[in-house]
Design a protein around this nucleic acid. Structure first.
Lengths: 270, 270
DNA sequence: CGGGAGCTTGAGGGAAGTCAACCGGGGTGG
DNA sequence: CCACCCCGGTTGACTTCCCTCAAGCTCCCG
């Protein structure tokens, strides 16, 4: 009965080595020409397996990785072994934006599922920004979106209880995956309760209990790795979730005179 | 007896409407020419008083504000009135970087002290990035630095106890203010315990108790608004503090070929 | 002198952590 | 093919950190 394609949402993705559908390339500040230049800079995709370390914490990298397929997590660790997940990358996201300007990232990136990453050499990208101002803006845009996400994450960690945090994370993921089509919502969540704990600043045991509570309240239905949200509005209300901070609509504020002096970029495309 | 200039640290700041000493302009990715272009884009400084709202949460802005003098806080609120401070801006910092590309910030900015802000019109800045790739990079650099700070903040909020969080914040501020000269460290902290609580995800009452503990342990000495750290190394050890994430040294990784094809920018001239 | 803002202190409660054990399933190796 | 094991989820008892509520205190300022 469960039509798999409904649950395992796949963003429209014309061809695997095309970046056009990714967050970077689809940022609202790029001209078509610039989008193409980005494509050309991308290296051939590389397969990663669940658990693979894509970027080791504190180790230099000279590439930006785009998650072409699969999920990854960004995490920092404390001296005494504590781990905090500071970001989740779903298909289309940049895995290690910081590497664009920093020699060594201060977090590690690890694949959560099997997947594919597309590398873009830092030097290539830097050179591109000189010729194409929009590419620089796209990178800034991505950084600012991550920023907004981290701020929201901090708000949750600092000021919300366990239930709200978990609910909020689920709402965020549903929204980012585009699984939130108004009615019922479902997606595959490749995170163990331990992962969730590290993301939410809780322990796995407590995540378990909170999850049971959400299930008991009919807010979520889980079977295996798949999560169904029967009544998104109710979960959003509990989580105090407002998707604005995700900037999914590409709500950049660029005066037309600045953006694309010669191209016709944005809404009425070609 | 207390030589004020030792405690109220003032970064070297040639003239008030010069941005050269600020985080944006001193980012390691700018040529001198670009630095000058930035200066020229800045509006005349505006005075703000403690408590003034510089940017209202959720309200559109068309300027970037540089804190030329004084402190400001960035905060988000939850529906039920909870407040989380998601950033502190000290002299030289950008107050609302997000406004560079986003129409409305998802946080509010409020002055903590009397001070001065320098506005830069968004349009001006956007136009500049087209002519000067380094300016775009500088903005990205600032965004990435904020990102790193927010990640660290998340790590603290999620995985450290109250003492460590407070200690960490104090270490961070000391480092950012440049007050940390190896030996004893002192600076003025214009935050109430309530502010600290909102930053650390605690209550004011608990901040009070934790602070007393730090005092009792001889880790900090407070008199009025001034904080002295007699043994920075010990506090850093408690806080698990490593200043790398602040990127104070301007550790950007830019190949010389990309940065400034005609200028002589960085260390060894020509 | 009164009042407010910020700091301090105490008593009691609740949310989340810790420790420890058990279970179910899927992989692996004998 | 079965036994084993490991991983992830689940449950229970106990502890601890931090919150809540409430009051008193000390400044500073009008």
């Amino acid at each position: 009965m469960t039509d798999a394609s409904r649950f395992f949402r796949t963003p429209k993705r014309p061809s695997l080595n095309s970046l056009s559908w990714t967050k970077l390339a689809s940022s609202p500040v790029l001209s078509d020409e610039e989008r193409q230049a980005l494509e050309d800079a991308a290296l051939t995709p590389r397969a990663v397996r669940a658990g693979d370390e894509i970027v080791r914490e504190g180790q230099a990298t000279d590439q930006l990785y785009v998650m072409a397929d699969g999920w990854a997590l960004r995490a920092k660790t404390t001296r005494d072994g504590g781990r905090q997940i500071v970001g989740l990358a779903v298909p289309g996201d940049l895995a290690n934006l910081d590497s664009f300007l920093f020699g060594r990232p201060d977090y590690g990136v690890r694949a959560l599922t099997h997947g594919t990453v597309v590398g873009i050499p830092r030097d290539r990208l830097l050179a591109l920004t000189a010729a194409h101002p929009g590419i620089g803006r796209a990178l800034t845009w991505c950084a600012l979106v991550e920023n907004a996400g981290l701020s929201q994450w901090a708000l949750c960690l600092g000021r919300q209880g366990a239930q709200q945090r978990l609910a909020h994370l689920l709402c965020e993921l549903a929204a980012r995956l585009g699984a939130d089509d108004g009615a019922g919502v479902a997606f595959t969540l490749p995170l163990t309760q331990e992962h969730l704990a590290d993301a939410l600043g809780l322990t796995a045991v407590h995540v378990n209990r909170v999850m049971q509570q959400l299930r008991a309240d009919g807010l979520i239905i889980t079977v295996g790795r798949s999560v169904t949200i029967p009544d998104p509005e109710r979960l959003r209300a509990l989580a105090d979730f407002d998707p604005a901070y995700l900037h999914l609509e590409g709500d950049a504020t660029i005066p037309p005179t600045v953006l694309a002096p010669h191209a016709a970029p944005m809404p009425a495309g070609v």
